[in-house]
């Protein structure tokens, strides 16, 4: 098995809880989801008929229950396919209907502090331009800005500034 690569796909602040971002990594479309503060990544392709799964709705589910009884649970943890409505567990990639038989590929996600380690990501990463962000943070992608020394008049006392924001890293 080949060694997995790190791919920085955005800043954690881009994807608030309940939000998602669809990124293109190594030729694959992948959805990154923030489920109650934890990030998960799923392949953006439904194993049923190939729909763009990660564009589906994020919901809860009805737990198995007695006839006539509805138990709503796991709000925000279930992804419903935008075509046929199949339910997927965002935390495992497994379908709710047949978890042992049908699942979508998942990828490891970590959150890293900028500067924690050398950025070893390859050139294909950081596809912020083609990503679709969703949720409350839509459109507010925080560019990692830093002041440029040559723009500051020389008589002003300056200090080195770095912005350390959590970065989302996909491993595949």
């Amino acid at each position: 098995m080949r060694e997995r690569k790190r791919h920085v796909v955005g800043l954690a602040s881009e994807i608030p809880p309940g939000g998602r971002k669809i990124v293109e990594v190594e030729g694959r479309s992948i959805g990154v989801f923030n489920v109650h503060g934890t990030f998960y990544a799923l392949r953006n392709q439904c194993p049923h008929q190939g729909a763009p799964l990660c564009r589906g709705s994020i919901k809860g589910l009805t737990l198995p229950s007695a006839p006539g009884e509805y138990l709503w649970a796991r709000e925000g943890e279930i992804l419903r396919c935008p075509w046929h409505g199949w339910e997927f567990d965002l935390t495992t990639g497994k379908t709710i209907c047949e978890p042992d038989r049908t699942r979508v590929r998942t990828y490891e996600v970590t959150v890293e502090r900028a500067g924690d380690e050398e950025d070893t990501s390859d050139g294909e990463t950081g596809g912020a331009g083609d990503g679709e962000t969703g949720g409350a943070g839509d459109g507010e992608t925080g560019e990692g800005s830093s002041l440029k020394a040559e723009e500051i008049p020389p008589d002003v006392e300056t200090y080195p500034v770095t912005v350390e924001e959590d970065r989302i890293v996909l491993h595949l």
Binding site: A51, R55, G56, S57, W83, G85
Partner: peptide
């Protein structure tokens, strides 16, 4: 009416 969605979301 379909309880999930009636048309492809995309």
């Amino acid at each position: 009416g379909n309880p999930v969605h009636g048309a492809r979301l995309d």
